[in-house]
């Protein structure tokens, strides 16, 4: 039997006043070791879902299990092993970044002793690229710095699971790369990461598993490797498309000028067949869909069905 997933929801639904279904029948599954990319347009229900995972918002119906424990019932026990960044960073504006981390650590159970807390604060600030010596109040921080501080707070207690809502919001490209490297390094060391984003490219670069939310419904959830797997079609470019179509009669699914999409499980065999018939081949390879195509297809299909 496989291990219980770190995040599992069943039929998770949130109705807001006025009957808006912000989240509708969602079954998420994040397994240990995943970098789970949670995709969806703004307003698709990502943040509400994440808030329900963390016990901030009560589901209208359905279940949430976090690290195998029911939420919100056991939320205060289980959150000690989770680090979270929820819809933008928050901090006490009159305190420095350091002081914010220390207050937050002291506020909860199982907080560190003073010296250890100071060490961990230095460490974690350095980790996210903030200067541990900076005593300026958070009020003077840029959005990018606040975002880093929020990440530092999430990392502080070395959680097993990181839940990050739009972690790269407000960061410049350099910062985005840094944070991505940081999260991937943590993942290699065993941290499971659930990150939401509306940026496909970001998720495609980092994730091992993807879930797509559209209008509150989970329209797709699969391993990225599966989504990128060959589609069973081969993309062929040839200077002599007419002869190729004649040879492959019935197997050509689509023709666009000199590019043909051919139904074939084996690109090498197809190549041999074409060359054997004396048809020149300019380019040939198994068709793989980009994440964007997959997501658009899934979102579109869901829209039509509803």
């Amino acid at each position: 039997m496989s291990e219980e997933p770190l995040v599992r929801t069943q039929a998770l639904t949130k109705l807001y006043r006025g009957g808006v279904r912000a989240v509708d029948d969602v079954a998420l599954e994040v397994r240990r070791g995943d970098v789970y990319g949670f995709l969806g347009a703004n307003g698709s229900g990502k943040t509400t879902t994440i808030r329900m995972l963390l016990g901030l918002v009560r589901p209208t119906s359905g279940e949430v299990h976090l690290l195998g424990q029911p939420v919100p019932r056991a939320v205060d026990r289980v959150l000690t092993r989770v680090g979270a960044l929820v819809e933008g960073p928050g901090g006490y504006a009159h305190l420095s970044g350091r002081a914010n981390l220390q207050v937050l650590d002291a506020a909860g159970g199982g907080s560190l002793r003073r010296a250890a807390r100071r060490r961990r604060t230095d460490e974690v600030l350095e980790h996210v690229g903030l200067d541990p010596g900076d005593r300026r109040p958070v009020r003077t921080y840029s959005l990018g710095m606040r975002q880093r501080l929020g990440l530092a707070a999430a990392l502080f207690r070395r959680p097993e699971l990181l839940v990050l809502d739009e972690p790269t919001n407000g960061l410049d490209p350099q910062g985005i790369t840094e944070i991505r490297e940081l999260l991937l390094a943590l993942n290699r060391e065993g941290t499971t990461v659930l990150l939401s984003s509306h940026l496909l490219a970001e998720v495609e670069q980092m994730s091992t598993r993807v879930g797509v939310l559209a209008d509150g419904r989970l329209v797709l959830q699969d391993d990225l490797a599966e989504l990128h797997a060959p589609t069973g079609r081969v993309r062929l470019r040839t200077p002599d498309p007419d002869r190729a179509v004649a040879l492959l009669a019935g197997r050509v699914e689509h023709r666009d000028g000199d590019v043909l999409l051919v139904r074939s499980p084996d690109a090498a065999a197809l190549n041999a067949e074409l060359v054997g018939a004396g048809i020149p081949v300019a380019e040939l390879g198994p068709e793989r869909r980009s994440l964007e195509q997959v997501v658009l297809a899934a979102t579109g299909a869901a829209r039509e069905a509803s």
Binding site: R51, L54, L56, L79, G90, G91, Y92, L104, G109, G150
Partner: peptide
Amino acid sequence: GTLRYLLVRP
């Protein structure tokens, strides 16, 4: 914005 961070601290 600190309420949610206190609650998830937890």
